Deep mutational scan, measured.
Amino acid sequence: EDGINLEEIREFAKNFKIRRLSLGLTQTQVGQALTATEGPAYSQSAICRFEKLDITPKSAQKLKPVLEKWLNEAELRNQEGQQNLMEFVG
């Protein structure tokens, strides 16, 4: 629908959760960090719904690039050390 690749979103949601957990981050931490930079659309409950795919494809499509960018950045910081990650997450 609307050129939205559901399979891709499903895959990303699954990987997002795995990668988030491997960084040792909670949904709350991700939500707080993103709410600070991106606004309330990225709250803990939004992250939770995204991971469960309990949102419309359109919403998922909107969240995905922001979550992807944030997660990549978080992983980079983590490679530089846990301290850097925690500063990034705030």
Score class of each variant (00 low, 15 high):
E1N: 11
D2F: 12
G3D: 15
G3L: 15
G3I: 15
G3K: 15
I4C: 05
I4H: 04
N5S: 11
N5D: 11
N5I: 14
N5M: 12
E8I: 07
E8A: 08
I9N: 00
E11F: 06
E11I: 07
E11T: 05
F12M: 01
F12K: 01
A13H: 00
N15L: 09
N15R: 11
N15G: 03
F16R: 01
I18D: 13
I18T: 14
R19Y: 00
L21A: 02
L21K: 15
L21N: 13
S22Q: 15
S22C: 11
S22A: 15
L23K: 00
L23W: 05
L23T: 01
L23Q: 07
G24A: 02
G24H: 00
G24N: 06
L25R: 04
L25C: 02
T26V: 02
T26M: 01
Q27P: 10
Q27R: 13
T28Y: 13
T28A: 15
Q29M: 06
V30H: 04
V30L: 03
G31M: 02
G31D: 07
Q32I: 05
Q32A: 14
Q32H: 12
A33Q: 12
A33N: 01
L34R: 02
T35L: 11
T35C: 14
T35W: 07
A36P: 04
A36Q: 11
T37V: 11
T37P: 03
E38T: 06
E38Q: 12
G39E: 04
G39P: 00
P40V: 14
P40F: 07
P40Q: 08
Y42N: 07
Y42Q: 02
S43W: 10
S43H: 05
Q44W: 04
Q44I: 03
Q44A: 15
S45G: 12
A46I: 11
I47M: 03
I47V: 07
C48E: 15
C48N: 14
C48H: 11
C48R: 15
R49H: 09
R49Q: 13
F50E: 07
F50V: 00
E51D: 00
E51H: 02
K52L: 04
L53N: 11
D54W: 01
I55R: 03
I55Q: 07
I55Y: 13
T56M: 04
T56P: 10
T56R: 06
T56Q: 07
T56W: 01
T56K: 08
P57Y: 08
P57Q: 03
K58C: 09
S59P: 01
A60P: 01
A60T: 01
A60F: 09
A60H: 06
Q61T: 09
K62V: 12
L63P: 01
L63K: 01
L63W: 04
K64C: 05
P65L: 03
P65F: 08
V66N: 06
V66A: 08
V66Y: 01
V66S: 02
L67W: 01
E68L: 02
E68K: 03
E68M: 02
K69M: 09
W70R: 04
W70D: 09
L71V: 07
L71T: 03
L71Q: 04
N72V: 10
E73P: 02
A74P: 03
A74W: 06
E75V: 03
E75N: 10
E75K: 01
L76C: 04
L76F: 08
R77N: 14
N78D: 11
N78V: 10
Q79H: 12
E80R: 10
G81D: 09
G81A: 11
G81E: 08
Q82H: 13
Q82F: 05
Q82W: 07
Q83E: 13
Q83V: 08
N84K: 15
N84Y: 06
M86N: 13
E87H: 11
E87T: 09
E87W: 02
F88H: 13
F88K: 14
V89I: 14
V89C: 12
G90P: 12
G90H: 09
